[in-house]
């Protein structure tokens, strides 16, 4: 069991229950507000252990907002308010005693735009290790993370080069390496391929399939084919503009195959078949 109330013991943290199946993050979002604006309502989504959960839906449907609520990234926005609960391995991450900093150390994130730090490739990957005061073999950890991110062969001779000198696709893989270097339990990916070309996208998708051996992954994508290719489970969100607002909500979640081939809801069916209005 991971305790969120203390600082994480970094990379040495155990991999809680990845052998078993079950739910890593259970989000019961009743309402998410930005100020007075109701952004998301009634969305109960689960991120399953050792699987890839895809969040799909039209723009404004709140899929990114929900994803960013899973590691309290939305706390950066002062007007953000969440009603409901998000449980990570049995603990409510929005409980008063929980420090969002610790949550984010256990639940890594990869963003839409590649965002390596303006420092060497090596230091980018070692960043989380240093942050968590890891005592041990940095070279080995950095190499392992870069290998898992499928970047090692391309950068092993230029680890001292600035990470920003890499191409966009390489930068995104560097960000993945940075996120997984500390062995977080869950990896959240917010449209990780939307700024990349098709070849780089394919590489990252293959990478995701490898990563799910060790991590529970949740990915937001606007690309339905991508969800079909990589996700085991898919959550479909839609947006409700009936009351003059734009409020996202979960329509249904299920096995990817079922969502795409035999959706329960008409909204899902319309969206999948391209008849979304």
């Amino acid at each position: 069991m991971v305790s969120l109330n203390t600082v994480a013991p970094a990379a040495a943290s155990p991999r809680p229950g990845l052998s078993e199946t079950g739910v890593a993050i259970d989000a019961r979002v009743e309402k998410i507000y930005y100020g007075d604006f109701l952004a998301v309502r009634d969305s109960h989504v689960a991120v399953e252990k050792g699987q890839i959960t895809g969040f799909i839906g039209p723009s404004g449907c709140g899929k990114s907002t929900v994803l960013r609520s899973l590691n309290r990234m939305n706390d950066l926005i002062p007007s953000f308010r969440l009603m409901g609960s998000v449980t990570f391995l049995g603990q409510d991450i929005y409980a008063k005693s929980v420090d969002p900093v610790v949550v984010r150390r256990h639940i890594g994130m990869v963003f839409q735009q590649p965002n390596p730090f303006s420092m060497s490739i090596y230091e980018n990957v070692a960043f989380g290790l240093r942050l968590n005061r890891f005592k041990g073999d940095y070279d080995e950890k950095v190499e392992t993370a870069l290998r898992k991110a499928g970047l090692w062969n391309e950068v092993k001779d230029k680890l001292r080069q600035n990470g920003l000198a890499l191409s966009g696709g390489q930068q995104q893989r560097l960000c993945i390496a940075r996120a997984i270097a500390t062995n977080p339990t869950v990896l959240l990916m917010d449209e990780p391929c939307s700024a990349l070309d098709p070849i780089a996208t394919r590489i990252i998708e293959e990478l995701m399939l490898e990563l799910k051996q060790e991590y529970s992954v949740a990915i937001v994508t606007h690309n339905m084919q991508q969800a079909m290719r990589v996700a085991d489970k898919t959550a479909f969100f839609s947006v409700d503009i009936s009351k003059g607002g734009r409020t996202g909500f979960l329509v249904e979640q299920g096995d990817t195959r079922q969502i795409f081939h035999d959706p329960r809801e008409k909204l899902t069916k319309d969206y999948i078949s391209g008849e979304f209005s």
Binding site: L76, V103, R104, F111, F127
Partner: peptide
């Protein structure tokens, strides 16, 4: 850029870190 700040907080830094 804002994305750099996000990256830092996403790694689990405190504000001072």
């Amino acid at each position: 850029p804002y994305k750099v700040k996000e990256a830092a907080y996403g790694m689990g830094t405190t504000r001072w870190e």
